[in-house]
């Protein structure tokens, strides 16, 4: 039996298998949808909405989502920051960062010097506005992370982040401040993560700032993809002129920005 025959039979078996899986999953999907319909009509419609809105004044923020995130279920957000940190530590444990991209040409560098400060300012605004309108730590952190990604794409191997020591402090800031605030409140007898109404707003803001910095640095470091290179990895001056003319950067970096050989 020649190779091609066994291969074709294997491919055929594969196709049948995937068809079977598809059919069974379709049945599963239909059943789930039907049960979802029953669950919907089970009449628990208001769920937690009314209760959340009723308790809103006591949380110190007027944006309900931020209230849930940082007051009702603050413990979830604490643990979720720990998840992000764990993922990053896992990435760092795998090895040093891949070599960065080449220094960007004049046009891209110009664009970067405009976009990055804009992103940072918008992040700050989103952080502040999170108190009473859609926004908050995660969106602000994401924007900071995006700024880091763009700086990395523009050729800075450390994506605009400080050295490893400082990076470690920034990464840890979010969870550290969150836990210390929680334990502090517990020490004062208020209970873990139970904000007294008077200070709630400022405590939440403090935690949000720390969280934004931590998320921003974590996402940028994740994009770098490894332990930050030591000080010696700074790109030297002569790399500047070796660059070919770079077109305007679209979200997808064109082949011109191929990694250093």
């Amino acid at each position: 039996m020649s190779m091609s025959q066994s291969e074709s039979r294997a491919a055929e078996r594969n196709r049948d298998l995937s068809l079977l899986v598809a059919v069974s999953l379709a049945v599963l999907g239909a059943a789930l949808t039907w049960l979802y319909f029953i669950a919907l009509s089970a009449g628990a419609a208001p769920r937690l909405a009314d209760l959340a809105y009723e308790r809103l004044p006591g949380t110190g923020v007027s944006n309900p989502v931020t209230a849930v995130l940082l007051n009702y279920r603050a413990y979830d957000t604490l643990m979720e920051l720990a998840v992000l940190l764990a993922a990053l530590l896992g990435i760092w444990s795998l090895g040093p960062a891949a070599p960065g991209f080449q220094r960007s040409g004049a046009v891209l560098a110009g664009m970067v010097s405009w976009v990055v400060p804009l992103l940072i300012v918008t992040g700050g605004y989103l952080l502040w506005v999170g108190g009473y309108a859609p926004g908050g730590a995660f969106q602000a952190g994401a924007l900071l992370g995006a700024a880091g990604v763009i700086v990395r794409l523009a050729g800075d191997p450390r994506a605009g982040l400080p050295g490893e020591g400082a990076q470690r402090w920034l990464l840890v800031l979010g969870v550290l401040v969150f836990t210390l605030v929680g334990l502090g409140l517990m020490a004062f007898g208020a209970g873990f993560l139970t904000y007294p109404p008077k200070f709630a707003k400022w405590l939440i803001l403090l935690i949000e700032m720390a969280a934004t910095v931590a998320i921003g640095v974590a996402l940028a470091a994740a994009y770098v993809g490894g332990r930050p290179p030591g000080p010696e990895a700074q790109p030297t001056a002569e790399d500047e002129d070796a660059l070919t003319a770079a077109e305007t950067p679209t979200p997808d970096p064109t082949p011109a920005l191929r990694p250093q050989p």
Binding site: A49, V65, A67, V68, Y72, R73
Partner: peptide
């Protein structure tokens, strides 16, 4: 209802961190 919104927000960040680790692995 704000509660599921918060849950999804947390879920998104968890998903992206897991994806990042999986990609690097």
């Amino acid at each position: 209802d704000p509660v599921p919104h918060a849950l999804v927000l947390t879920g998104i960040v968890v998903a992206v961190s897991a994806t990042a680790l999986a990609l690097m692995l």
